[in-house]
C-alpha cells in the first residue's frame, strides 16, 4: 500500500464515520423528545455531515479518479463502506442515541485534536474546524448521559441497557488497519491505541458522575473498518442512495 492509498482510505473512513453517524442522528429531526432537542440533534448532525463532505471531497482528490463527495457517498455498497460499526447502529430509544454519540465523541475528540497537528494540511484544516464542533458534541452527550444515569430509575436503567448493548462496538475504534498503521508511522495520524487512555478517562469520569457501571464485557465486535458491517448499514444505504441509484447520472 502506498502512502497515497493509505491516505485515501483514511479520509474515506473519516468521511464514512461522520456521514453514517450524521445520517443516523438526523433521523431524530421531527421526532425528538422535546423541541429544543430536535434543534440540538440537528445541529450535531449538520456538523457531522459537513465534516463528511470535507473528508469525502478530500478522499476523492487523493484517489484521483474523478469521484467526488456524492459519488463516494451514494455509489458505494455497504461492503465498500469502512466506517466503525458503532456509527451505523440504529437510533433506538433516546438513551441509545446518547450513548452511541457519547462513546463515539469520546474517541472522536482526541483523534481530532491529534489530527489538528497533522503535517497533512488538508486533514489538519478539517480537524481544526471539527475540534470545536466535537467539543460541543461530547459536552452535549456527556451531560445527557449524566442526566439519564442520575435522573429517574427508568432513565438510569435505559442508559445502562444502552451502554451494555453498544459497548461491544468500542474496541474496533482503537484497532488500526494497514492504512492507519502506515499513516501513523509517517506521523500523519496518531497511533489509535494511544487514544485509548484519553477515551478511558472520559468514559470513566462521565460514567462515575452518571452512577452507571462500565460494562464488564471483554468481547468486542469488529469488521466495520474492513467493510464487514451489521445488517443495519445495508438498509440505511438503500434508503439514502435510492434516488441516485434509480436515476443514474442525474443532477440534483
Amino acid at each position: 500500500m502506498t502512502q497515497q492509498e493509505a491516505l485515501f482510505r483514511f479520509a474515506l473512513r473519516m468521511g464514512d464515520n461522520t456521514l453514517v453517524l450524521g445520517h443516523r442522528i438526523s433521523e431524530w429531526c421531527g421526532h425528538a423528545p422535546v423541541l429544543e432537542e430536535d434543534i440540538a440533534q440537528a445541529n450535531i448532525a449538520l456538523d457531522l455531515i459537513g465534516q463528511a463532505r470535507n473528508y469525502l471531497a478530500y478522499a476523492g482528490e487523493v484517489e484521483g479518479k474523478g469521484r467526488g463527495e456524492d459519488a463516494l457517498a451514494y455509489l458505494r455498497d455497504s461492503r465498500e463502506y469502512i466506517n466503525a460499526l458503532i456509527t451505523e447502529q440504529p437510533k433506538g430509544d433516546f438513551a441509545h442515541t446518547i450513548v452511541r454519540s457519547f462513546l463515539w465523541d469520546a474517541f472522536h475528540l482526541p483523534l481530532l485534536k491529534a489530527l489538528a497537528n497533522s503535517p497533512d494540511e488538508r486533514l489538519k484544516g478539517i480537524a481544526e474546524k471539527a475540534v470545536k464542533e466535537v467539543t460541543y458534541h461530547l459536552r452535549h452527550s456527556s451531560e445527557w448521559l449524566v442526566r439519564f444515569g442520575d435522573g429517574t430509575g427508568e432513565s438510569h436503567d435505559r442508559a445502562q441497557a444502552a451502554l451494555n448493548d453498544l459497548w461491544r462496538f468500542t474496541g474496533e475504534l482503537f484497532e488500526a488497519d494497514d492504512a492507519e498503521r502506515l499513516l501513523a508511522k509517517a506521523g500523519i495520524i496518531p497511533q489509535l491505541e494511544n487514544l485509548k487512555a484519553d477515551w478511558n478517562a472520559t468514559v470513566d469520569g462521565v460514567l462515575k458522575e452518571a452512577t452507571l457501571q462500565r460494562p464488564a464485557g471483554e468481547w468486542m465486535a469488529s469488521g466495520g473498518k474492513h467493510g464487514m458491517h451489521t445488517e443495519h448499514l445495508g438498509l440505511m444505504l438503500a434508503e439514502m442512495q435510492v434516488l441516485q441509484r434509480t436515476h443514474p447520472g442525474a443532477t440534483w
Partner: peptide
Amino acid sequence: WITRAPSLRRKAILLAKVQ
C-alpha cells in the same frame, strides 16, 4: 426526505431547513 436527499449538499440544506 432527509434520509433520502439525493446529494450531501441537499441533505444538509434540507436538514437545516427542517431544523
